[in-house]
């Protein structure tokens, strides 16, 4: 009577078959998960590569790598002011998360630290604060910033006891200039064109200079 129920009843058979299948595949998957586990989470490296590496700590973590690790563990992606919107967009792309407005104020232009050297007392506090060793100097000698290495994190500004460090816009040369994208269909691409006043002054220069 019982085996009649089991063998002839299609539903029971189906359930048994499905259950055994899921057992087998579940075991396989579990085994594969154990066997091929990746120890080091590569996603942290990818996140870190997108961060601007200013090491400024404005996100509340001591450097970009710790923040990258925190993001991989669920921290919000909008806490990096130096990276700005483009970094948030890249992170959102990478992680499949939603783009959120920046938490804090975005920096409008890249900056570098500038030490007013005659005011510097040589206390080395800023040297200790700099995350990328971009400040040179020794105790009781004035310090100076290596502009090329400075990431503009402003971590050196607060420790300075005499307040002689300013954040100034990064000096730009004509080499940094980029061709602008044209305005797009339906628009005229702006051309410099001669400015009438310039022309007038130029001729005067030619005549009198």
């Amino acid at each position: 009577m019982l085996d009649f129920v089991i063998i002839d009843n299609g539903i029971v058979l189906a359930i048994v078959a499905l259950a055994s299948l899921s057992l087998v595949f579940g075991a396989l998957l579990g085994f594969a998960g154990e066997r091929f586990r990746v120890d080091d989470d590569p996603i942290v490296e990818h996140i870190d590569a997108l961060l601007p590496q200013t090491q400024c700590g404005q996100c509340g973590y001591p450097g970009c790598k710790p923040y990258a690790k925190a993001i991989s563990e669920g921290e919000a992606i909008n806490k990096c002011p130096p990276g700005g919107d483009s970094t948030i967009r890249d992170l959102a792309d990478l992680l499949g998360r939603e783009v959120r407005p920046l938490d804090g104020e975005a920096e409008d232009m890249p900056k570098v630290a500038y030490i007013r050297e005659d005011e510097c007392i040589g206390c080395t506090k800023c040297i200790q604060a700099c995350p990328v060793d971009a400040i040179l100097g020794a105790a009781r000698h004035m310090h100076t910033v290596i502009i090329d290495e400075c990431t503009g994190c402003d971590l050196c500004v607060d420790p300075c006891p005499v307040d002689c460090i300013d954040m100034v816009p990064r000096p730009s040369t004509l080499d940094d200039w980029q061709w602008p994208f044209p305005a797009g269909p339906g628009q005229r691409t702006p051309a410099p064109g001669l400015i009438a006043t310039d022309r007038a002054s130029a001729t005067q220069g030619a005549v009198h200079g």
Binding site: D48, Q53, Q55, K65, V132, D133, T151
Partner: peptide, 17 residues
């Protein structure tokens, strides 16, 4: 250029650490 600079800053940070 920016990516290279960021990479370099990271290396300097690692050196400091």
């Amino acid at each position: 250029h920016e990516a290279r600079k960021a990479e370099h800053a990271r290396h300097r940070f690692e050196l400091r650490q």
